[in-house]
Amino acid sequence: MELKAQPIINLQGCTKCGLCVSGCPENALEMTDRGPRLRQPIRCSYCTDCEALCPTGAIRTPLIVTWGSNY
């Protein structure tokens, strides 16, 4: 299965508060010594909840806006 885009985690801005890990509805994140990482990238649905939960803006989930084929 093709691995799609994943949240961009800036470990330098992370305080390891764990909100992203506990709030991930797919349980795709885990906390490590360095900060959060995607434990199971394939499970990430790119819901953007982790970005919304991060109090320091260390997680970004940028969106691509494009026209569909039959607009």
């Binding site: 799609k4 885009a5 649905s45 790119y46 989930t61 691509i64 806006v65 494009t66 569909g68 607009y71």
Partner: peptide, 13 residues
Amino acid sequence: IDRDHQKIILLNR
């Protein structure tokens, strides 16, 4: 619009 993972797809101009 439609959502597909990272994409926001505009369907109806």
